[in-house]
Design a protein around this nucleic acid. Sequence first.
DNA 1: TAGATTGTTAATCGATTAACAATC
DNA 2: TAGATTGTTAATCGATTAACAATC
Lengths: 210, 210
Amino acid sequence: MKNISLQTIKRIPTYYNVICNILSNKQKFLSSNFLSDLMGIDDTTVRKDLSSIGCNGRPKQGYNIIELKKHFEIFLGFNQPKNAIIIGAGNLGCALAKYEKFKKYGLNLIALFDKDPHKIDLVINGIKVYNLSKIQEICKDNNVEIAILTLPEDEAQSITNTIIKYNINTIWNFSPVNLSVPTSIFVWNQDLVSNFLTLSKLAEIKKHKI
Amino acid sequence: MKNISLQTIKRIPTYYNVICNILSNKQKFLSSNFLSDLMGIDDTTVRKDLSSIGCNGRPKQGYNIIELKKHFEIFLGFNQPKNAIIIGAGNLGCALAKYEKFKKYGLNLIALFDKDPHKIDLVINGIKVYNLSKIQEICKDNNVEIAILTLPEDEAQSITNTIIKYNINTIWNFSPVNLSVPTSIFVWNQDLVSNFLTLSKLAEIKKHKI
DNA sequence: TAGATTGTTAATCGATTAACAATC
DNA sequence: TAGATTGTTAATCGATTAACAATC
């Protein structure tokens, strides 16, 4: 397996979505051109991406769809579930807890946490809400790798400082805060307001260009 | 205003979050180095970004925080609200409807839509749920620009085909589908499963490097 | 064999970073 | 004035795209 670029890794889930959507067809092979057309990228990019993660096509035929799908699933780690907790049992936290698909794709939700006494002991989609004071215990007992932060911005940094002591190495951050963490911690920012602001600006620019 | 790169636009909301978080300090000015340290990027990148959107600093002093904040707000269009509808009143759609911050940042939610008769006429955070058949009427009456898709994947494409006839030019797509749209339509993909798969892979790679 | 499609090397494009003059 | 910090040009790095040989 060659060096895989950041941009390639970001595209793999999209390739996966695309081929899942055409599985019902009787088609057994697809070409890089077919994928590149659907995704609005260059066909050379598709071949480079697939080649870099070790997918081989056949000249004149293309890529075997079933093989491709399996390859993506192994690459993306569907069968190596990661344990995660959600911190903040508000609307978004609860919606994520109820999102059925996560499990299938390897995200195993262990518990929710909140400081509101009214929420403690609620069970959301089979996942229990605990008081924040239980985080350490539950992280230790369950080998939790990922913390999903759905907290108000004024609480996100201090909770982060706490949880990084408990072996969590990945933070999926939905709070509108730029977290300060040691270099060993990986943070993925998913603040929806920031995303809205970016998409809205890009839409505006596109509109003016046309 | 010079040419603004895609990467710059993606960083502006983060700059904004950072300066909002230090507003309480008495500090009046900040340096590009201060911002670059917090964000983990090069200070030259900060100066280029700010310069490209027309923010001017002063040698030896840095950038005026209040001016910077105002500049970002104008650039990001906080005061030019955009009307949007949410299609799919499931857990995620409802959580977004309840997210109080959107309004403040210029996202004006007009209505929710669903096909489930039990959900029709519910009011979520002041926003009413309508039958899908009402989309055309409501889009026309309210100058709706943005559609937020929180639908199962098998419905997303057909709804998309419908709504692009009603003057919607921007789609914020939470469904795990690569939508086909005319070039005039701007699509921002926010599928949370894809994001999880990408972040999980990047975390794994980072772990192996250390 | 001829033609379609892969896979890779080279060229281009865009973004980041280094170097440094301008300036308050 | 000396020093810190901006703002910009040039160099580097990484990603995309073009060109094309390999191959089924």
